[in-house]
Design a protein around this nucleic acid. Structure first.
Length: 357
DNA sequence: AACCGAAGCAACCGCCCACGA
DNA sequence: ATCGTGGGCGGTTGCTTCGGT
């Protein structure tokens, strides 16, 4: 059904950019009498605009409490965090960012943050690592072909970066599954949440087993497991509500696991999320930093992206971060001549999926 | 200097929902 | 219970600006 546009039948109603004179008419009228009925406002204010246009102009641009200018790092992080929970509920997100309008946040998301997340290998819709299995399935051949030359051109190099992001994403997903498996295994036990050391040991054992080789310190590609684990920890915290929604009995275990890991991280304590929409009530206004997402450890791709996009986390990551080692991530080493390593990984992932908690 | 494509953003469009008659 | 209206929302468009060639 719906209703007809408010300006239907109003021939000659002006559209397009507002002039300073129109702005003044609108501001003066609203400040003196309030907006009242938006439909009647244009005529009363002497504007040749439709009411809807007036309302939009006022709420998105002329309102005196609007904060203009560049989004701060904290605002960026908060938007990303809220979007991971609320989705495209821009008005809801805007209520947590005083002075920002839903339209402004929406535009900023579409033009900046969405690209930034994509560049980090994170799906901006699900906020999970991107895993294009069809691409991964073809990865061994692609990498083998790419490794056939030591002189990659620009396009080929770009492709390699994309492939590395996909590879990282696959590992993150695998690790998430392992964390869930660990939490479920621990669920029947009445014991308190595992300590950081105990949790780390258990995960290391699982990772070693899952890796299918005898080198417990490596998870392919020369990536130290503890580094990947912390990456997984960061990612797991961001996605915890979605992960635990299908396994409520183990959510506390998972939260505890992440809590204990997070307590010692350089980014400061960040409790296992478990954040509901009602929890958000306390995260607005001056407490913006209380609600921001945890700092994601940097990987090489992040640094490239942050450099290009004025990233939020690059400068704040200590130079001596253990994740600096990921700069040397070399996926070539992940691939056996027959590509069996990636095949194993994909099989492990499908096993995890078929045993969804 | 001129042209062109990309990026950014203000504004519009159409649908939906709440509410009152 | 139904219908019409006002207002709000998310998605999209198109203009402007910027940077590269």
């Amino acid at each position: 059904m719906g209703r007809s546009p408010c300006c239907d039948g109003e021939a000659g109603v002006k559209k397009g950019p507002w002039t300073p004179e129109e702005d003044k008419l609108l501001v003066d009228y609203i400040q003196e009498k309030g907006h009242g009925s938006w439909r009647r406002l244009p005529k009363l204010a002497g504007l040749n605009r439709c009411g809807k246009s007036c309302r939009l102009r006022w709420t998105n641009y002329l309102r005196p409490d609007i904060k203009r200018g560049r989004f701060t790092d904290d605002e960026e992080k908060l938007i990303i965090h809220l979007h991971s929970i609320l989705g495209n509920k821009w008005s809801s997100i805007a209520t947590k960012l005083p002075g920002r309008t839903d339209n402004e946040i929406k535009n900023y998301w579409n033009t900046h943050l969405r690209k930034k997340l994509l560049g980090m290998g994170i799906d901006p819709v699900t906020h999970r690592p991107r895993t294009d299995l069809s691409l991964l399935a073809g990865l061994p051949a692609l990498l083998a072909a790419a490794s056939g030359t030591n002189n990659l051109g620009g396009a080929a190099a770009w492709d390699m970066n994309a492939l590395r992001l996909q590879a990282d994403a696959a590992k993150f997903q695998l690790l998430q599954g392992l964390v869930r498996a660990l939490a479920t295994a621990a669920a029947p036990a009445p014991a308190p949440a595992p300590s950081s050391a105990a949790g780390m040991d258990s995960l290391m054992a699982l990772l070693a087993a899952s890796n299918g080789n005898n080198n417990a310190a490596q998870l392919g590609g020369g990536v130290d497991q503890s580094m990947l684990l912390q990456q997984c920890q960061w990612d797991g915290m961001l996605n915890l509500p979605a992960l635990t929604s299908s396994a409520p009995t183990s959510s506390l275990q998972i939260s505890g696991l992440f809590d204990s890991f997070g307590a010692g991280s350089s980014g400061g304590h960040y409790a296992g999320d478990g954040l509901s929409s009602t929890d958000l009530e306390g995260h607005g206004g001056s407490n913006v930093t209380d609600a921001v997402a945890p700092q994601r450890p940097m990987v090489a791709a992040d640094q490239n992206n942050a450099h290009a996009a004025g990233g939020v986390s690059c400068e704040e990551t200590p130079a001596a971060s253990p994740f600096d080692g990921l700069d040397s991530l070399n996926l070539m080493d992940d691939i056996n001549t027959d590509g069996s390593t990636w095949k194993d990984l994909l099989e492990q992932m499908s096993w995890l999926d078929s045993n969804e908690l």
